[in-house]
């Protein structure tokens, strides 16, 4: 069974380890799955010009982002033999050390999930209009750019 329903991707604030654990537990009934793979993006306390990033405040062009997430989802299902796939991205403030992106793919076989996960994460970074304001410990800020 393939799980292709559109889902809401954005979550307010950090993605908790409890939520991630529950997502894994929900798949115990899907017994055709033989392999999961998970990517967790964590806010890094970069030091820039002597100042340390304490949090990132995420905003998005949500209408376009939802279209792009959907395009990525469809492309991934087209390209890889996935049983299901879930993407969650934070909006608002996420502190250094907290999780801001959770991508979860499942398939009968392991090789598929390694390739699919990288494909999906790279597409998210390149194509989805999400913007990150890096807030420093002294409350000044700069805008993050993906490499």
């Amino acid at each position: 069974m393939t799980d292709k329903k559109p889902k809401s991707v954005f979550k307010e604030g950090a993605i908790s380890s409890g939520f991630i654990g529950e997502s894994i537990a929900k798949h115990q009934t899907k017994t055709s799955i033989g392999a999961h793979n998970i990517f967790l993006g964590q806010v890094r306390a970069d030091v820039i010009d002597g100042k340390t990033v304490s949090a990132i405040d995420y905003t998005a062009y949500e209408d376009m982002a939802n279209i792009k997430f959907n395009d990525i989802r469809e492309a991934a299902f087209e390209k890889f033999d996935l049983t299901c796939m879930h993407i969650y991205h934070s909006l608002g403030v996420v502190k250094a050390g907290e999780i801001c992106l959770f991508v979860f793919v499942s398939s009968p076989r392991r090789k598929v999930v390694f390739e699919a996960l990288e494909f999906i994460v790279e597409k998210i970074k390149a194509n989805v209009p999400v913007f990150g304001k890096e807030i420093f410990e002294d409350d000044s800020h700069q805008w993050k750019v993906n490499n």
Partner: peptide, 10 residues
């Protein structure tokens, strides 16, 4: 129309 700075998701 939307003006979009460089993306920074993830």
């Amino acid at each position: 129309i939307a003006l979009l700075p460089p993306f920074a998701g993830g």
